[in-house]
Each structure stands twice: as C-alpha cells, then as structure tokens.
Nucleic acid binder design. Structure first.
Lengths: 223, 223
DNA sequence: ACCTGAACACCGTTCAAGT
DNA sequence: ACCTGAACACCGTTCAAGT
C-alpha cells in the first residue's frame, strides 16, 4: 500500500520544511508569531522535536534567512561596465527580498551565515574590486549595498502594516497623528504625510532606491 | 532635614529616568537584557510600577529611541549649497547614534514617534525640497538617508560583538568560519575577511558612508 | 536517527487593591 | 498620583527517556 498523501498527511520534519513553514507564518503574521511552540503545533509535533533539526531558535531564524537568500538568481559575470553589472546583481536581490517585508529585518546580520548569502557577497565584492576599490572599501560598500536593499523593503511605506489584520486602522491612526502636527513647525512633513503612509508607486520607489545606490558608488569612484 | 542623597538613594521614577537606565543597560548588555522585570529590579521597584509610566514595553522602547534622538544637535539653516547643508545634518545624527550600536536597530521605525525625531525629519525633507525634489521624492530620500546612517552604526564591523563579554572569542569564531571557505570559490571574501571582523579605521568608515549618501543624492538630482 | 514528557527559569501583562 | 501583590498565559530550553 502506498503511503497516504493528501491534505491531512503529516510530512516528515526537515530543516527545509520547518524553515519554509516558519517563513510563510512570518509573512502572514509577522516575526513575533514565529515561536518554537507555534511551529511545533503547526507541524503537529512536540516543541522539542524542532531542537533535533535546529540548535536553537537563532539557528532556525538563520534557516529562514537562508531560504530567502536561496531565491536570489544571480546572472553570470560578463564584460559590461561595472554600473550595468551592479544593477544586474542588485535587482535579483531585491526581487528575492521584496516578497518578505515582515521578515527582511532578519537578513542583514545573517548574510554570512549561509552559502547563498556568501555567494552573493563574494560576487558583489568581486565586482567592486574590479571596478577599482580596495578590499577594505569593496567589503564595506558591498555590505552597505545589501543592507540598503533590505532597508528599502523593510521600510517601504505601508508594507509593514500587513502584520496586523486591521491594515488601514493602523494607517488611519498614523495619519491622524501626522495631521495633528503644528503646520508652522512641520510644513514639509505635512505636505509629504501621505507618502509616509502608503507607497504611491512601488516600482518607482524601488527604481529610485537602486539608482541612488549605483550613483552613490559612482560618486565614491570618481572622488 | 534634607532628603537623603548618595549612592543608596531611591530616586522617584519618571519616564526619563527609566528610559535613561534602560538605554545604559542596553548599551552594556544588549537589547535582549532590557526587560520590564530587569528594569524593575534595577530601580528597586515592582514590575508593575513601570506600567504607570509606559503603556507597554513598546512604549518604553519608544522612550529609549526618543532619548537618543534628543541628542541630535542640528545647526541652523543657512544659504550654503544643499550638499554642504545635508552633510551638516547627517553628521550630528551620526554623532548621536554612534555611541549606541547595540540599540540603533530600534531607531528606524521610531523616528516619527517623538518630537526630536519629527524635527530632524522635517529638517531633512525641507532641505531636499529646496534642493529640487518633489514631496514624494524628498520624503522617501529623507527616510532612506536616516535609515542608512543607522545601518552604518548597526553594522559597523566588530561593534555589535561588544554585547557578549567574550569579545574576541566571537571574533575568533567568525574568523575561523570565514577562513574555512574554499579559496577557489570565495577569493574576494577571503581577501577582505579581516574587514568584516574589525573596523580598520572607524572615522574613514563613517566618512565613506556619509560621502556615499551625499553622492547618491547628487546622482538622483542630476539624473 | 528522530521524537516525546515533564520540568525549569524566565517573559509581558491584567486586574484589583493599597496609600 | 504612584505603586504593590497575586495571578495568567505565554516563552525558550535542558534533561532523561522512549522507539
């Protein structure tokens, strides 16, 4: 008889399946919902079962980060100018992180803790080295670029509010707070209030972010 | 008889004294050490006492962030070019955040939750507006610049290791991990390994960071 | 190899009560 | 106004044990 399959099947636990479930949970309900005990019941298992697959909770979060970094699809290196190639690296990273605004805060401190993260760091540093930066400069700039991509996602206006289900209750409260400010003291804040609450156009938001980063590198190069 | 003063005096609790104590604790032992119960015993008081001064733990963390933002000393506006003025804003922000690498991760999502944070945001947006950016652009760029300053501090190589007391035990472990990488696959990472572990020169690290940000803005402006 | 059961030492927070 | 006491519903984690 073939093993049972279907919705009620209890799959064998594995690092990957646990991390995948944890990521989906975090995307839906936020990182605070990711709890050893919650994951255990979601997997129909005892909390201690998870400790066979992960040393501790921090290692489990490393696993979530690895899962996201493994989505990055880097293009092959070529002979185009450094700015074109840099864009070709940054965009796939953004594409991998962007679906996970509630989880992105995990990523910065965890790049060096997984093979996919190491690969993408190696690639970025190599590109910056060949553009003319020293090892010290290249490693700092590469780290900063990655952090910046993550920051763009983490702080995309409106994105983080998806954690609580009362999406626009939070937005309304924030709007009320901003609009209660003294217009004499905070004219510019009031003029721009709407752009802190929701993102007018996500694509142009991210395009501007990437442009900023590439121009920043160019500025350091020609200084 | 004058009220007792000296080392054993139990001061009256206040929002400010609690936040100050919490910040010092976080600077010494990291944010995980900042616990309602720990702060209570540090203040020789019951955990519930803190709930009179702060709605909940999140509000207490807001208080810590406000404490740091209140250290920012902005210069008066003047008629110099936008890049000079932008530098004159970014540097005092950096100066306020830099002493608190273990706490800086709190700051990004909390700028708009205190008067000092609102003031500095207003100022940055105003400057970018007068440099020629639209309200949407100015607010996005201002938010990104602030996040970037914070990121520079949060991820300054070696800074975060000061949480655990075994400072160079952690550094040694990280070095071992990096040096165990295959030199064929990660040549650039290995060449730059040292710069991920400790910061060669903090001042040039931060100078490069600020230069990057200003050049990034210039790039968007001339695009 | 993979998982369970019971227990420990912590959390944040509510609610009613004291002065 | 400011703080206490007792209690609740959670955490992560250790340790010994089962199959």
């Amino acid at each position: 008889m073939a093993p049972r399959t279907g919705t009620a099947t209890r799959e064998r636990l594995s690092r990957e399946s646990i991390a995948e479930g944890a990521l989906e949970l975090a995307d839906r309900e936020g990182l605070d919902a990711v709890t050893i005990r919650r994951l255990a019941t979601d997997n129909s298992v005892t909390p201690m079962a998870l400790y066979w697959h992960f040393k501790d909770k921090d290692a489990l979060l490393d696993g979530i980060a690895e899962r996201i970094y493994s989505d990055v699809r880097l293009p092959g290196a070529d002979q185009r100018t450094w700015d074109i190639q840099l864009r070709a690296i940054l965009e796939p990273i953004l594409a991998a992180v962007r679906p996970h605004p509630l989880v992105s805060e995990l990523l910065a401190e965890r790049v060096m803790k997984s093979i996919p993260g190491l690969i993408l760091s190696e690639r970025a540093i190599g590109l910056l080295r060949s553009a003319g930066f020293s090892p010290a400069e290249a490693s700092q700039i590469a780290a900063f670029l990655l952090c910046s991509i993550i920051t763009l996602v983490t702080s995309e206006p409106g994105a983080r509010e998806k954690a609580g289900e009362d999406v626009d209750a939070i937005t309304r409260a924030k709007r009320a707070q901003l609009e209660s400010l003294d217009p004499k003291l905070f004219p510019n804040l009031l003029e721009a209030a709407e752009f802190f609450l929701v993102c007018e156009d996500e694509d142009s938001y991210y395009a501007r972010g990437i442009d900023f980063l590439i121009e920043g590198v160019r500025g350091l190069l020609t200084a």
